[in-house]
Every structure is written in C-alpha cells, then in structure tokens.
Simulated scan of single mutants.
Amino acid sequence: MPKKSSKIGGGLSAVVGVLVVAVFVLYQLGVIDLEPEATAGPQGGDAPASELSVEQARSQLEELRIEEEDDPPGYDRALFPHWDTNVQENCTTRQAVLVRDGDAVETDEDCKPVSGSWYSAYDGETFTDAQDIDIDHMVALKEGWRSGAHAWTTEERGRFANDMDSTQLWAVSASTNRSKSDADPAEWMPPLESSHCDYVVSWIEVKHVWDLTVDPDEESALRDVLSGC
C-alpha cells in the first residue's frame, strides 16, 4: 500500500507541475490575467472623475481666455435655476448626484436618499447622512457670473447650474462646500492635497466646456497645480 500511495502522489505532483507550466505560458501570452483585481475605493462612491488627462487639461488651459473678472451688478442665484426636477425619473438634480456619487444608496418613492454613504473628495471624509452632503458647483454660480455667464440667457444659466454631463457637480461635505463659497483656485483649494490635481482638471474642463474666462491669478494657480501633477 505505501508504494501505491507513493505512485499516486508522484502522479499528482507531475500533473500539478504541468498545470503550473501551462498557466505560466498562458499568462506570458496574455491569455489569462494573474494580477489581483483593484480594490474598491473609499466607501461612499467616487468623485465625478474627469475624462481629461492632465496633458489634455494643460492644452485646454491654453485655450481659455484670460481676462480680468467682470462682475456687473444684479447677480442672484435665482438667475441660475438649479436642482431641476425629473432629471432622472422623479429625481431632482441634487438627488440624482447623491445617487450617482454615493455607495449603496437607497431612496424612497420621492427619490430622497434614506441610506448609503458618501465620500467627500475635498476632505477625505465619509458620511452616512445625506444631510451632511452639499452638491458643489465646481465653478460656483457667482464665479460663472463673473466669468461670462452674466451675458447668458436664464435658460443657459439653468443648464450650467444643473450640468451632469461635465464634472460641474460634486457631492462633498457641507463644511468644505461652504468654506469654498464662490472662490476660484487662486483663493481656495480643497484641504485634501491629494485631490488638487483632479480638482483643477475638473475646473479647467468646466470652464472650457462653458467657454468661461479665467482671470490672471486664477490661471496662474491652475498652472502651478498642474505643474505638480
């Protein structure tokens, strides 16, 4: 019996050896992938990552018009109708962004989030109460006004305020959104430094999509951040 067991063991070893060699050959040929899958990001979903590369952002920055800000009187948030209803089924824009950017979000019949978590890319914090989350306009409405939107129609300003096609809308902590207010990157950057590259790439994308100007200090700040990306 011991000899028979030894023969079986030897046969199994040979088979395993052949399989190992076969797997290695298939891996070298690219037929199979032995790399471990990437782990999930922070709980609470991801920021609305721009499809722009840093190089593309640099190129778009060169195309933006550099002008001193024009801030004519008459600004009012009501001139930028926002949080449209029925954006996705019965959801408002705010609710749609919360669902898009959150993790395991569940909503009630009115599309109000009742559970889930949200990762705030501005400060690296995760929240489980939607009331702690603001929807930030990457380019604030008043910044848009100063950069050219004052000359738009109300309909155009409404599309800007509810733009889910670019990276204009971010679900972030209420505290960072309110700290930012209507500042541009020369005046405010997210406290989480690792988010700065994504932040300025998104800023440039939105300004480029909407053909908004940048002022000299703003342009210099954007260029400085991109140089380190």
Rank of each mutant, 00 (worst) to 15 (best):
K112L: 11
L79F: 10
P185A: 03
L64D: 01
V21Q: 06
P216E: 06
A221C: 08
L141Q: 07
W188M: 07
A22K: 03
I135T: 08
A174Q: 13
V31F: 13
A221I: 07
V87Q: 12
R223G: 10
P73C: 06
K142H: 13
A57L: 05
L98P: 05
P113L: 02
D108N: 15
I135L: 13
D132C: 02
A121Y: 03
L141C: 03
G158M: 09
L12S: 06
A57H: 01
V114G: 01
G30K: 10
D33F: 04
S227C: 04
E219H: 15
T154A: 11
S6K: 13
N90H: 11
A78K: 12
A22N: 05
T176A: 00
D84I: 03
L141I: 04
L12E: 00
Y199F: 15
E89V: 13
C229S: 03
D46A: 13
L79Y: 08
Q60R: 12
S179D: 14
Y75Q: 05
S175W: 06
L169D: 00
L12V: 15
M164Y: 04
P113Y: 01
I8G: 02
Y119K: 08
D136W: 10
P42D: 00
A40L: 13
Q43N: 09
T107L: 08
P48F: 04
W203P: 04
D163G: 09
T154Q: 15
E218K: 02
H196I: 05
V15A: 14
I135P: 06
V114L: 06
L26H: 03
E218F: 00
Y199M: 09
A151S: 15
S194D: 14
D224L: 12
S173C: 00
E68A: 13
A151I: 00
D123K: 07
K4M: 11
E89K: 13
Y199R: 10
L226N: 06
L79K: 15
W145C: 02
E63M: 11
P72V: 02
D136M: 12
K207G: 03
V31G: 03
V172G: 02
T85R: 15
E37F: 05
